[in-house]
Computed example of a mutant assay.
Amino acid sequence: MTSPPGGGENGSAGEPRRFVCARCGTSVDVPAEGPPLTWTYSVESGIRQYYCESCSRENLRSIEGRLDSDWW
């Protein structure tokens, strides 16, 4: 699926987008497309959930444990 330039899920180009950690509530405004490089995300019940660097590191084993063996 593609989005037109400057539109789509991340809003218009150059506009900061706020990401909020689904676990601890930490938020960050990012001027680039997508979440910060150190954040992770998962799709749960069809909804994309973002997790900050701290929560991702603290729960890495649980995150990896949910992946199909094809991913590792």
Rank of each mutant, 00 (worst) to 15 (best):
L60Q: 07
E44G: 08
P31I: 03
W72V: 14
A22W: 03
A32F: 13
R66A: 07
T38I: 09
T40H: 07
G14W: 05
R66C: 14
R48V: 05
L67T: 09
R48Q: 05
G11C: 08
E53A: 06
D68G: 12
P31F: 12
W39S: 04
E9F: 06
S62R: 05
E15P: 15
C55E: 02
G14I: 06
G7N: 08
E64D: 08
P31G: 10
E9C: 07
C21Q: 06
G8W: 01
R17G: 02
P5F: 07
T38E: 11
E58L: 13
V28C: 01
I63E: 07
V43Q: 02
S62H: 04
P5M: 05
W39E: 06
R23W: 09
R48L: 04
T40L: 05
A13W: 10
P4A: 07
C52S: 11
W71E: 15
W72E: 13
G14R: 07
G25T: 06
G34R: 00
P31S: 13
W39F: 08
R57S: 10
R66T: 14
S3E: 08
G34D: 00
G14E: 05
W71K: 08
S56F: 15
C55D: 04
P36A: 05
S56H: 09
S69F: 06
S42F: 02
V43F: 00
G65P: 04
I63Y: 13
T40R: 06
G6Q: 03
S54V: 08
V28L: 02
C21T: 09
E33T: 14
T2Y: 11
T26M: 12
N10I: 04
L67Y: 08
A22Y: 03
M1V: 12
A13H: 12
D29V: 02
C24Y: 06
S69L: 11
A32Q: 09
P36W: 03
P35L: 06
C55H: 02
S27T: 02
R61G: 10
Y51K: 02
T26R: 08
N10T: 15
E44A: 15
Y51V: 01
W72F: 09
W71A: 10
T2S: 11
V30S: 03
D70H: 11
E64C: 04
L37E: 12
V28N: 01
E33A: 11
A13C: 11
D70T: 11
F19A: 04
C24D: 15
G34L: 00
C55Y: 01
C24F: 05
E58P: 06
R18E: 00
A22V: 01
L37M: 14
R23T: 15
G11Y: 01
R61L: 09
A13T: 10
